[in-house]
Protein backbone atom coordinates (compact mmCIF):
# COMPACT_ATOMS: atom_id res chain seq x y z
CA UNK A 1 0.00 0.00 0.00
CA UNK A 2 1.59 3.21 -1.14
CA UNK A 3 1.63 5.71 1.68
CA UNK A 4 3.47 8.29 -0.37
CA UNK A 5 2.90 8.81 -4.05
CA UNK A 6 4.92 11.42 -5.89
CA UNK A 7 3.97 11.95 -9.51
CA UNK A 8 5.91 14.07 -11.99
CA UNK A 9 6.94 16.53 -9.29
CA UNK A 10 8.76 19.66 -10.44
CA UNK A 11 9.42 22.77 -8.44
CA UNK A 12 11.33 26.02 -8.58
CA UNK A 13 11.64 28.52 -5.75
CA UNK A 14 9.99 31.92 -6.25
CA UNK A 15 13.11 33.87 -7.24
CA UNK A 16 14.80 31.11 -9.10
CA UNK A 17 14.52 30.54 -12.84
CA UNK A 18 15.98 27.07 -12.63
CA UNK A 19 13.85 24.24 -11.23
CA UNK A 20 15.19 22.78 -8.03
CA UNK A 21 13.57 19.42 -8.68
CA UNK A 22 12.47 18.09 -12.00
CA UNK A 23 10.03 15.36 -12.89
CA UNK A 24 10.39 13.23 -9.80
CA UNK A 25 8.37 10.04 -9.50
CA UNK A 26 8.51 7.93 -6.37
CA UNK A 27 6.20 5.69 -4.41
CA UNK A 28 6.87 4.62 -0.87
CA UNK A 29 5.01 1.76 0.76
CA UNK A 30 3.90 1.74 4.34
CA UNK A 31 6.57 0.42 6.68
CA UNK A 32 9.42 0.98 4.25
CA UNK A 33 12.76 2.53 5.14
CA UNK A 34 13.86 4.67 2.23
CA UNK A 35 17.29 6.22 2.14
CA UNK A 36 17.70 9.33 0.01
CA UNK A 37 21.11 10.55 -0.98
CA UNK A 38 22.95 12.55 -3.59
CA UNK A 39 25.50 15.33 -3.95
CA UNK A 40 24.98 18.63 -2.14
CA UNK A 41 22.38 20.97 -3.48
CA UNK A 42 20.67 18.38 -5.64
CA UNK A 43 17.19 19.01 -4.34
CA UNK A 44 16.92 16.62 -1.43
CA UNK A 45 15.90 19.28 1.08
CA UNK A 46 13.41 20.75 -1.36
CA UNK A 47 11.96 17.30 -1.87
CA UNK A 48 11.46 16.83 1.86
CA UNK A 49 9.57 20.06 2.08
CA UNK A 50 7.35 18.97 -0.77
CA UNK A 51 6.40 15.90 1.20
CA UNK A 52 4.83 17.71 4.12
CA UNK A 53 3.25 20.49 2.15
CA UNK A 54 5.51 23.36 3.23
CA UNK A 55 6.11 23.48 -0.49
CA UNK A 56 4.12 24.86 -2.16
CA UNK A 57 1.81 26.18 0.54
CA UNK A 58 4.28 28.13 2.67
CA UNK A 59 7.00 28.69 0.12
CA UNK A 60 5.08 29.58 -3.04
CA UNK A 61 7.09 29.17 -6.21
CA UNK A 62 6.26 27.14 -9.28
CA UNK A 63 4.94 23.72 -8.46
CA UNK A 64 3.72 21.03 -10.80
CA UNK A 65 2.87 17.39 -10.36
CA UNK A 66 1.17 15.65 -7.48
CA UNK A 67 2.24 14.60 -4.02
CA UNK A 68 -0.17 12.34 -2.17
CA UNK A 69 0.53 11.58 1.47
CA UNK A 70 -1.61 8.94 3.17
CA UNK A 71 -4.36 9.72 0.70
CA UNK A 72 -4.10 13.48 1.05
CA UNK A 73 -3.11 15.68 -1.86
CA UNK A 74 -0.61 18.16 -0.42
CA UNK A 75 -1.83 21.09 -2.45
CA UNK A 76 -5.33 20.72 -1.11
CA UNK A 77 -4.71 20.28 2.58
CA UNK A 78 -3.14 22.70 5.04
CA UNK A 79 0.27 21.84 6.41
CA UNK A 80 -1.14 21.30 9.89
CA UNK A 81 -3.36 18.55 8.58
CA UNK A 82 -0.62 16.74 6.69
CA UNK A 83 1.56 17.11 9.78
CA UNK A 84 -0.67 14.57 11.50
CA UNK A 85 0.28 11.96 8.94
CA UNK A 86 3.84 12.88 8.10
CA UNK A 87 6.43 14.42 10.39
CA UNK A 88 9.48 16.32 9.16
CA UNK A 89 12.72 16.56 11.16
CA UNK A 90 15.20 19.20 10.07
CA UNK A 91 18.96 19.41 10.06
CA UNK A 92 19.69 21.82 12.83
CA UNK A 93 17.95 21.17 16.12
CA UNK A 94 18.78 24.68 17.31
CA UNK A 95 16.23 26.03 14.90
CA UNK A 96 13.69 23.36 15.64
CA UNK A 97 13.41 23.45 19.39
CA UNK A 98 11.85 26.57 20.78
CA UNK A 99 10.37 25.69 24.15
CA UNK A 100 12.04 25.92 27.53
CA UNK A 101 11.74 22.29 28.58
CA UNK A 102 11.86 19.02 26.69
CA UNK A 103 8.45 18.06 28.02
CA UNK A 104 6.82 21.20 26.74
CA UNK A 105 8.62 20.86 23.43
CA UNK A 106 7.22 17.39 22.88
CA UNK A 107 3.79 18.55 24.07
CA UNK A 108 3.65 21.42 21.58
CA UNK A 109 2.34 19.30 18.70
CA UNK A 110 -0.44 17.48 20.61
CA UNK A 111 -1.38 20.78 22.26
CA UNK A 112 -1.89 22.27 18.82
CA UNK A 113 -4.25 19.45 17.99
CA UNK A 114 -6.41 20.46 20.95
CA UNK A 115 -6.28 16.96 22.41
CA UNK A 116 -7.50 16.53 25.97
CA UNK A 117 -4.82 17.17 28.54
CA UNK A 118 -4.35 13.59 29.71
CA UNK A 119 -3.98 12.50 26.11
CA UNK A 120 -1.30 15.14 25.59
CA UNK A 121 0.48 13.92 28.69
CA UNK A 122 0.38 10.26 27.72
CA UNK A 123 1.61 11.00 24.21
CA UNK A 124 4.52 12.95 25.63
CA UNK A 125 5.47 10.13 27.98
CA UNK A 126 5.20 7.57 25.21
CA UNK A 127 7.23 9.56 22.72
CA UNK A 128 9.99 10.25 25.24
CA UNK A 129 10.06 6.57 26.17
CA UNK A 130 10.26 5.28 22.61
CA UNK A 131 13.19 7.55 21.87
CA UNK A 132 14.83 6.72 25.19
CA UNK A 133 15.04 10.22 26.64
CA UNK A 134 12.49 10.07 29.43
CA UNK A 135 15.17 11.16 31.88
CA UNK A 136 15.56 14.44 30.00
CA UNK A 137 11.94 15.52 30.35
CA UNK A 138 12.70 18.44 32.61
CA UNK A 139 15.81 19.73 30.91
CA UNK A 140 16.10 22.84 28.81
CA UNK A 141 16.91 21.97 25.17
CA UNK A 142 19.74 24.50 25.37
CA UNK A 143 21.59 22.31 27.88
CA UNK A 144 21.48 19.22 25.72
CA UNK A 145 24.06 17.87 23.32
CA UNK A 146 23.37 17.88 19.58
CA UNK A 147 22.44 14.23 19.58
CA UNK A 148 20.04 14.62 22.48
CA UNK A 149 18.48 17.63 20.81
CA UNK A 150 17.78 15.67 17.67
CA UNK A 151 16.20 12.94 19.76
CA UNK A 152 13.95 15.55 21.32
CA UNK A 153 13.00 16.73 17.85
CA UNK A 154 12.17 13.18 16.84
CA UNK A 155 10.12 12.66 19.99
CA UNK A 156 8.31 15.92 19.36
CA UNK A 157 7.22 14.62 15.98
CA UNK A 158 6.39 11.14 17.19
CA UNK A 159 3.97 12.71 19.65
CA UNK A 160 1.86 13.59 16.61
CA UNK A 161 1.65 9.87 15.87
CA UNK A 162 2.51 10.21 12.20
CA UNK A 163 2.66 7.18 9.94
CA UNK A 164 5.66 8.59 8.13
CA UNK A 165 8.76 10.29 9.46
CA UNK A 166 10.89 12.28 7.04
CA UNK A 167 14.33 13.38 8.23
CA UNK A 168 16.52 15.83 6.33
CA UNK A 169 20.17 15.10 7.15
CA UNK A 170 19.46 14.82 10.86
CA UNK A 171 23.06 13.86 11.66
CA UNK A 172 24.74 16.63 9.70
CA UNK A 173 25.90 18.52 12.76
CA UNK A 174 26.45 15.53 15.04
CA UNK A 175 29.62 13.71 15.90
CA UNK A 176 29.84 10.06 14.76
CA UNK A 177 28.72 8.46 18.04
CA UNK A 178 25.66 10.69 18.36
CA UNK A 179 24.90 10.15 14.69
CA UNK A 180 24.92 6.41 15.15
CA UNK A 181 22.72 6.68 18.22
CA UNK A 182 20.12 8.69 16.34
CA UNK A 183 20.19 6.37 13.33
CA UNK A 184 19.72 3.36 15.60
CA UNK A 185 16.57 4.92 16.97
CA UNK A 186 15.25 5.36 13.45
CA UNK A 187 15.99 1.74 12.65
CA UNK A 188 14.16 0.70 15.81
CA UNK A 189 11.17 2.89 15.00
CA UNK A 190 10.94 1.28 11.64
CA UNK A 191 11.32 -2.36 12.64
CA UNK A 192 9.53 -2.26 15.99
CA UNK A 193 6.90 0.40 15.54
CA UNK A 194 6.34 0.13 11.82
CA UNK A 195 6.92 3.82 11.18
CA UNK A 196 7.69 4.53 7.53
CA UNK A 197 11.03 6.31 7.41
CA UNK A 198 12.37 8.54 4.66
CA UNK A 199 15.88 9.56 5.53
CA UNK A 200 18.15 11.96 3.68
CA UNK A 201 21.64 11.03 4.70
CA UNK A 202 25.27 11.24 3.64
CA UNK A 203 26.65 8.77 6.17
CA UNK A 204 25.64 5.77 4.13
CA UNK A 205 27.94 3.35 5.91
CA UNK A 206 25.89 3.66 9.07
CA UNK A 207 22.49 3.03 7.59
CA UNK A 208 22.57 1.53 4.10
CA UNK A 209 22.29 -2.01 5.44
CA UNK A 210 19.05 -1.14 7.25
CA UNK A 211 17.30 0.60 4.38
CA UNK A 212 14.83 -1.20 2.17
CA UNK A 213 15.44 1.07 -0.75
CA UNK A 214 17.86 3.77 -1.78
CA UNK A 215 16.97 6.75 -3.96
CA UNK A 216 19.64 8.93 -5.49
CA UNK A 217 19.07 12.53 -6.50
CA UNK A 218 21.36 14.39 -8.85
CA UNK A 219 20.85 17.92 -10.04
CA UNK A 220 17.17 17.90 -9.16
CA UNK A 221 16.35 14.58 -10.76
CA UNK A 222 15.77 11.19 -9.26
CA UNK A 223 18.38 9.22 -11.15
CA UNK A 224 18.44 5.91 -9.35
CA UNK A 225 16.03 3.99 -7.19
CA UNK A 226 16.44 0.46 -5.98
CA UNK A 227 17.70 -1.77 -3.25
CA UNK A 228 20.77 -0.34 -1.54
CA UNK A 229 22.89 -3.16 -2.86
CA UNK A 230 21.88 -2.46 -6.45
CA UNK A 231 22.29 1.27 -6.15
CA UNK A 232 25.59 1.39 -4.30
CA UNK A 233 27.20 -1.22 -6.52
CA UNK A 234 26.10 0.46 -9.73
CA UNK A 235 28.58 2.24 -11.94
CA UNK A 236 26.53 5.41 -12.13
CA UNK A 237 26.90 6.10 -8.44
CA UNK A 238 30.68 6.13 -8.61
CA UNK A 239 30.71 9.22 -10.76
CA UNK A 240 28.62 11.30 -8.36
CA UNK A 241 29.82 12.96 -5.18
CA UNK A 242 28.36 10.30 -2.93
CA UNK A 243 30.18 8.82 0.04
CA UNK A 244 30.19 5.17 -0.90
CA UNK A 245 30.81 3.02 2.17
CA UNK A 246 34.35 1.67 2.33
CA UNK A 247 33.07 -1.88 2.66
CA UNK A 248 31.37 -1.46 -0.70
CA UNK A 249 34.50 0.01 -2.24
CA UNK A 250 36.59 -2.92 -1.05
CA UNK A 251 34.00 -5.43 -2.17
CA UNK A 252 33.88 -3.84 -5.61
CA UNK A 253 37.63 -4.04 -5.92
CA UNK A 254 37.52 -7.70 -4.97
CA UNK A 255 34.79 -8.19 -7.51
CA UNK A 256 32.74 -10.07 -4.94
CA UNK A 257 29.72 -8.99 -6.85
CA UNK A 258 30.60 -10.94 -9.94
CA UNK A 259 32.53 -13.75 -8.27
CA UNK A 260 30.16 -14.55 -5.47
CA UNK A 261 27.04 -12.61 -6.30
CA UNK A 262 27.33 -10.88 -2.96
CA UNK A 263 26.84 -7.20 -2.28
CA UNK A 264 27.77 -6.55 1.33
CA UNK A 265 26.82 -3.15 2.66
CA UNK A 266 28.57 -3.17 6.00
CA UNK A 267 31.99 -4.06 7.37
CA UNK A 268 30.85 -7.13 9.22
CA UNK A 269 28.90 -8.48 6.26
CA UNK A 270 32.00 -8.07 4.16
CA UNK A 271 34.19 -9.66 6.81
CA UNK A 272 31.86 -12.63 7.07
CA UNK A 273 31.89 -13.15 3.33
CA UNK A 274 35.65 -12.91 3.18
CA UNK A 275 36.11 -15.30 6.08
CA UNK A 276 33.68 -17.68 4.46
CA UNK A 277 35.50 -17.41 1.17
CA UNK A 278 38.89 -17.93 2.77
CA UNK A 279 37.67 -21.20 4.29
CA UNK A 280 36.51 -22.12 0.87
CA UNK A 281 38.81 -20.37 -1.59
CA UNK A 282 37.62 -19.45 -5.05
Amino acid sequence: MAIIDVQALSYSYPDSPKPNILDVNLTVNEGEFVLITGPSGCGKTTFCRCLNGLIPISYGGTFSGRVIVDGLLTTEHPVYEIAQHLGLVFQNPENELFCTTVEREVAFGPENLALPRNEVRSRVEEALGVVGISHLWDKSPEELSGGEQQKVAIAALLAMKPKVLVLDEPTANLDPLSARSVLNILAKLNTESGVTIILVEHRLEMIAHIADRCAVFDDGRLVLVGEPGEVLYSEAVERMGIGIPKAVQVAKRLALNSKLGKKPLSSWDLAEIIRGASDDPL
Binding site: K246, Q249, V250, S267, L270, I274, A277
Partner: peptide, 27 residues
Protein backbone atom coordinates in the same frame (compact mmCIF):
# COMPACT_ATOMS: atom_id res chain seq x y z
CA UNK B 1 37.15 -3.56 8.57
CA UNK B 2 40.74 -4.31 9.54
CA UNK B 3 39.58 -5.56 12.93
CA UNK B 4 36.69 -7.54 11.51
CA UNK B 5 39.11 -9.22 9.14
CA UNK B 6 41.56 -9.74 12.01
CA UNK B 7 44.37 -8.12 10.07
CA UNK B 8 47.73 -8.31 11.79
CA UNK B 9 48.38 -4.67 11.12
CA UNK B 10 45.13 -2.71 11.06
CA UNK B 11 45.24 0.08 8.53
CA UNK B 12 43.29 3.00 7.13
CA UNK B 13 44.78 2.59 3.70
CA UNK B 14 42.29 1.29 1.15
CA UNK B 15 44.91 -0.35 -1.04
CA UNK B 16 46.35 -2.26 1.89
CA UNK B 17 42.97 -3.58 2.89
CA UNK B 18 42.18 -4.67 -0.64
CA UNK B 19 45.54 -6.40 -0.88
CA UNK B 20 45.13 -8.38 2.28
CA UNK B 21 41.47 -9.12 1.69
CA UNK B 22 42.13 -10.44 -1.78
CA UNK B 23 44.74 -12.82 -0.38
CA UNK B 24 42.21 -14.04 2.16
CA UNK B 25 39.58 -14.56 -0.49
CA UNK B 26 42.10 -16.80 -2.13
CA UNK B 27 43.94 -17.00 -5.38
Amino acid sequence: LSWDLALQRPTIDLEQVVLVASKLVGG
